[in-house]
Design a protein around this nucleic acid. Structure first.
Lengths: 140, 140
DNA sequence: CTGTTATGTTGTAACGATTACAATCTAGGG
DNA sequence: CCCTAGATTGTAATCGTTACAACATAACAG
């Protein structure tokens, strides 16, 4: 059975072509796409796709822990199918979002304060290594 | 000289009544207000205040490091005049945003990767201690 | 395989936060 | 006191997202 069919069934979600495509897209394009990017890309092969379906599906997948949404870029949500805890770096020069494979060691302290943590978001903003290099060369 | 006048002058910003009011509001209300909340509150004493001015001013203050903007709640920006590095906790039950006074020990690792970090955002989402207590009592 | 029904999908319209823009005003230096 | 760059205002536009109602389909029972 298809990997994505299985994932949906395991979570008690109905299996529809749209959901399979969105799941697969996220799994194959780990670049934190926006809902609109997902919509535009999938519309190419499925012209009747509706933007509402993309939003609904992303929300459902999120509720079942299958995707994770980032607010790092401010105006729009971005989606990530990497469920393992990790941080993100937003380059203010090139706009790319880089995965940073670290966990937050502070979470335990917060839980010690009596709060229950469901999500941990670690964002860094600045200029990435590759843009810094370009800037330096330009200044010569 | 007024504290806020001084802050603006130090950063080479023109001193206007609107900027002073916004700075003072943020300093006196450390609850991470949205631009709209700031606008509504200040409009009471200054009915000609424009929402555009609030947005512009917040952006300018941000560029000069005088305020810090949070994307923790998703659909809207929230502003914080506490410039010291700290994290935030969003309670999904009561919606309040709690300051968590910890620094990120991972930043150095990211810088070791060659990136330049300008901002560090640490967000936790879950249910706060006070809401957890209420929930427990309700279940008895 | 077929009918039924709850659930998913679609398209359009509405919404809320933010930004663009042009006209007017004002802070601050000469 | 005047001039000018820069700030403020109000309106209109934009963007991402959500609401809603009509229609379509997955999954299950028979």
């Amino acid at each position: 059975m298809d990997k994505y069919v299985q994932i949906l069934k395991e979570h008690g979600l109905k299996v529809t072509p749209q959901r399979l495509e969105i799941l697969r897209y996220l799994d194959m394009h780990k670049v934190h796409p926006t809902a609109d990017i997902i919509y535009s890309e999938l519309k190419k092969s499925n012209p009747s796709l509706s933007k509402t379906t993309v939003y609904n599906t992303l929300q459902h997948l999120g509720e079942h822990g299958l995707v994770y949404s980032l607010t790092i870029s401010g105006s729009e949500l971005r989606f990530d199918s990497n469920i393992n805890q990790h941080h993100h770096f937003l380059c203010k020069t090139c706009g790319s979002i880089i995965d940073i494979d670290i966990e937050c060691p502070n979470a335990k302290k917060v839980e010690a304060g009596g709060h229950r943590i469901d999500e941990v978001h670690g964002y860094f903003k600045g200029v990435c290594a590759s843009c810094l290099k370009k800037l330096k060369n330009g200044d010569d």
